[in-house]
Design a protein around this nucleic acid. Sequence first.
DNA 1: CTTATATTTGCATCATTGTTGCATTTGAAA
DNA 2: TTTCAAATGCAACAATGATGCAAATATAAG
Lengths: 138, 138
Amino acid sequence: MEAKEILKQHQLKRTSCREGIIEVMLKAAHPLSESEIRELLAGNYDRTTFYRSFITLEESRIIHRIVVDQQTVKYALDYSITHKQEHAHFFCQVCHDVKCLEAIPLQEFVLPQGFTKINTDIVIKGTCPNCQQNPNSI
Amino acid sequence: MEAKEILKQHQLKRTSCREGIIEVMLKAAHPLSESEIRELLAGNYDRTTFYRSFITLEESRIIHRIVVDQQTVKYALDYSITHKQEHAHFFCQVCHDVKCLEAIPLQEFVLPQGFTKINTDIVIKGTCPNCQQNPNSI
DNA sequence: CTTATATTTGCATCATTGTTGCATTTGAAA
DNA sequence: TTTCAAATGCAACAATGATGCAAATATAAG
């Protein structure tokens, strides 16, 4: 699907900043940070505009956050757009990339009586194959 | 174990700020935020001192962070101190409390070839029993 | 117990990031 | 093309992360 259509479906105005962010994410092989998206974006937007675009896109459930730690947040298109299954994410502590672990089936979390589950975030931290082989490529 | 001994075992100087933080966490029923700990703390420390104490305690693996989202971070004593099993955490989106889900056994995450796992963070978001019953108690 | 020393604290300070108000600009519906 | 609500860009402020340094303090040695 195209960025334009995604915005229309979610009843958001088609602005170049929003459209650009979605386009970058459609092309991306894995979740990107705000600064990575900013660098891949054609236009040069005010940081407030950029900041508010993420809020809007997240509120409309077009994108979702993957919070690795306080200083590392990545963004990915929502499952409803990618049609992917919910999955765990892998964070490489060397190259700081996040990869989707779609191949790993997730367990069912049966909560104690009275708890209601909305969603589950799973982040596995470690070293990715590339950084294992080339430990000096930081 | 007592705060004093924990600091000694980790070869840290016994300062009242560090000791106070550990004592508060030893008494706590569930993970606390920085501001919650600050309120429960007897002394009134400079924010830099407080800030650096958390860095030191985390580096020495006395405490660990539970990152719920960018603005919600809770702290708990390290598993090596509490002797608890690794477990998932539950974040209530109404009262913002975090509870340890020690009763839920965790699956094994078998990573693809070449990945090395260091640890796994699991945060389940939803509504806790108390807030389910009293939806206006925010 | 006293002294010596390396560590920690508190304060000042600066950087970065989150957030809001408002005038101007822009998208899209009529 | 016109109209109007929504989005942008800018200024400004708040909150938080981070660092340098003199003064205070914990610990080990005497």
